[in-house]
């Protein structure tokens, strides 16, 4: 069991003439086995929250804290956070020329587990996970994200999540740019991990369509850097019908 607690989180980014506040007091708790959807209009700070949890150096925490099972996440380096059990499926995964997917996955697995995976079982595990995500075996020999289509990049993110088996997974707009088939394949991957582990999921999205495949337990509406409203799955239905307009009007 793991608990991710975000308390009164304020985050800024550096701009030419100082710091620009993006998050203005976020409170959120994600426990093992729970799925939280964070929804909100563009520019509301959803991705900032995701990258701050992962520890991207661009984002400066000016107030508040992030705790994983009581441990101060903000004092951990990026790789320590991942080894502590956190995972970020990125919206824009980065190319790493000359590093093959298979080498990358093995290196990451070794780092997370603290020892190299047993070669025999690992190869099978990777192949099974790739099959389930409808990824051609040839994919493993390609360089990380190099020349990947949008859908391939997202499947590759979910592949990593399934193999690394995090305690808390943050999915940053994993649905963006996916057609219906790819969306379903990616969602199945998330649901598989939810089914065979106790992963807590923080699903960040602009649209509700991924929520037809991945059922949230909680829905939080993010506006202007803080949570404006929260509720159960029914809140997502209401957003689908009404859009974000009523939140935007009140945020001004």
């Amino acid at each position: 069991m793991a608990t991710l607690e975000i308390k009164n989180l304020h985050v800024s980014i550096a701009i030419a003439d100082g710091l620009k506040p993006i998050l203005r007091g976020v409170d959120l708790t994600v426990r093992s086995g729970e799925t939280h959807a964070i929804m909100g209009p563009n520019g509301s700070g959803k991705s900032t929250l995701a990258y701050t949890i992962a520890g991207h150096p661009r984002y400066e925490v000016t107030e508040g804290e992030i705790l994983l099972d009581g441990e101060n996440v903000l004092e951990m380096s990026v790789d320590e956070r991942a080894r502590a059990g956190m995972f970020l499926a990125m919206q824009y995964p980065v190319e790493v020329p000359g590093v093959t997917v298979s080498n990358f996955l093995r290196t990451a697995k070794t780092a997370i587990d603290g020892k190299a995976p047993a070669l025999r079982t690992w190869t099978g595990e990777v192949r099974t996970a790739m099959d389930a995500l409808r990824m051609d075996p040839e994919f493993a020999t390609r360089n990380v994200n190099e020349g990947f289509s949008g859908g391939e990049k997202k499947r590759h993110e979910i592949l990593q999540m399934e193999l690394l088996r995090p305690q808390i997974a943050v999915l940053d707009e994993t649905d963006s740019g996916l057609d219906v088939d790819a969306l379903r394949i990616v969602s199945e991957g998330v649901n598989r991990l939810k089914g065979n582990s106790e992963v807590g999921v923080l699903l960040i999205t602009h649209y509700t369509r991924i929520l037809q495949y991945i059922k949230p337990d909680f829905v939080h509406v993010f506006v202007a850097g803080r949570i404006a409203e929260q509720g159960g799955p029914e809140l997502a239905d209401r957003l689908e019908a009404e859009g974000y307009d009523r939140f935007l009007a009140s945020a001004v």
Partner: peptide, 20 residues
């Protein structure tokens, strides 16, 4: 950042990038 976000320590990540 991408490599470290997968748990890979900085020195190992740098080596991966140079080899690559």
């Amino acid at each position: 950042f991408y490599l470290k976000a997968r748990g890979i320590p900085e020195d190992v990540a740098r080596r991966l990038v140079v080899r690559g």
